[in-house]
Design a protein around this nucleic acid. Structure first.
Length: 285
RNA sequence: GCGUCGGUGGUAGAGCGGUCAAAUACAAGGGACUGUAAAUCCCUCGCCUUCGGGCUACGAAGGUUCGAAUCCUUCCCGGCGCA
């Protein structure tokens, strides 16, 4: 009995899915039942000061459950998946050491996969200077550069995707070549719970949520960011909520994003999906 | 009422005798994704298809022409100007 427990991989609960489906709520509920501690998986909630626009959970809503990977960096700086992976793996270990259950909760599929599939990122941090130079070049120019550095990679890359081309060059320049995709399965057992809503219900939920966002002072949040010296360009990067938002644009953009999220999650067959409008869930675990 | 400009695919909007099922953008649908990921990129997008093509389409009906979204006539609808 004892032996089997010892050999079993520690369990980690993952709650993912579309925006506005109530992931945070569910995470807190589950955390209460299983001595859980929550790690956010949201590429924007990591920033301090992006609260209303990102729909960040409030202190009150946390109901005393510890939350991590929220507010870990200044908006002026840039966060990356690799950093996310590093910090999250650290947190997982800490939580497990305490004898609690880590719960990863969020909608950024790439971040979740980084943890869950153990993606190994080549150790080449972004080179802003280089990127600035490369950005001015055309696709064919970039491809030519990459071809010289790493023929094989150039033959396989999406030649129309500038962002990817630039990153490949960045890696090849420092490593000599671009390593093939790598991953090591993490020593955990992930239980993936996906939340979704039927289109009409999602729409209503998003509308409600966006209205509340404006009522809660999204515009003030933006004003504050601007006062802190955040440029328009940066605000744009932070998402459609942060650049000249109106309730209409935010609603339609959110819905579009929700669809893209589904495209991402669809290919992960380990996810167990639940209709968030039907309040079943929990139980075993 | 007269004059004038216009009516094009889900929307906006090109085309103004053949190369037009109709540029482009957006919306929609599908997909990719290994350090920007709410990012970035790709495909499909009238109907049918044995993927060669076939059929129906640019407000409506006629007409001119070998050939019309494109020219003419009438009608219907909308904007503007004059009464």
């Amino acid at each position: 009995m004892k032996k089997r427990n010892f050999l079993r991989k520690p369990k980690i609960i993952v709650i993912l899915g579309q925006t506005a489906t109530g992931k945070s709520d569910l995470a807190v509920k589950i955390a209460k039942k299983v001595n859980g501690e929550i790690i956010s998986a949201d590429s924007r909630q990591v920033y301090k000061g992006l609260d209303i626009g990102t729909g960040k959970i409030t202190k009150k809503e946390m109901k005393g459950i510890p939350h991590y990977l929220l507010d870990v960096i200044n908006v002026k700086r840039k966060f990356t998946v690799a950093k996310y992976k590093e910090l999250t793996e650290e947190k997982i270990k800490e939580i497990l050491a305490r004898g609690n259950t880590p719960i990863i909760c969020g909608g950024t599929g790439f971040y979740i996969d980084a943890i869950t599939k153990g993606i190994i990122f080549p150790e080449v941090p972004p080179n802003i200077k280089l990127r600035k130079i490369l950005e001015k070049k055309s696709l064919t120019e970039l491809l030519k550069i990459l071809k010289k550095l790493d023929r094989r990679c150039a033959d396989n890359i999406d030649t129309k995707n500038k962002v990817r081309l630039i990153r490949a060059i960045e890696i090849a320049k420092t490593l000599g070549k671009v390593p093939t995709a790598e991953a090591t399965p993490p020593p955990y057992k992930f239980i993936k719970i996906g939340l979704f809503l039927p289109t009409d219900k999602l729409k209503k939920k998003v509308e409600k949520r966006v209205k509340k966002m404006f009522k809660d002072g999204l515009l003030n949040e933006i004003k504050k960011l601007k006062k802190e010296g955040i440029s328009d360009k940066r605000l744009k990067e932070l998402g459609f909520e942060y650049y000249n938002p109106t309730p209409e644009t935010v609603i339609t953009e959110t819905l579009k994003y929700a669809k893209r999220q589904i495209t991402w999650f669809k290919r992960d067959k380990e996810i167990k999906w639940f209709d968030a409008s039907k309040s079943v869930i929990i139980k075993r675990l």
